[in-house]
């Protein structure tokens, strides 16, 4: 989306990080979704468990 459109439509936000910013955007009636972000190191830890799960074909 061009900058022009961003300024014309206003921000529609994906908030990644500090949850407070999400709530403050909600207070201003802005459209916003919050991402409960975790470092990818933690995600890949979970992912490797998941991969094992798939390979093992848990049932």
């Amino acid at each position: 989306m061009a900058i022009k459109d961003l300024l014309a439509n206003g921000p529609i936000v994906v908030n990644i990080g500090i949850e407070q910013f999400y709530h403050d955007l909600k207070k201003q009636d802005a459209k916003v979704v919050h991402v409960d972000w975790r470092p990818s190191a933690l995600k890949s830890d979970l992912l490797s468990k998941l991969r094992k799960l798939r390979e093992g074909g848990a049932n």
Binding site: F21, K31, V32, V35, K43
Partner: peptide, 19 residues
Amino acid sequence: FPKSLNGALSMLPEANLAL
């Protein structure tokens, strides 16, 4: 709260800015 950018965008596909 979705855990990933893609998950968030599936909930708010018209998003135009990431903070």
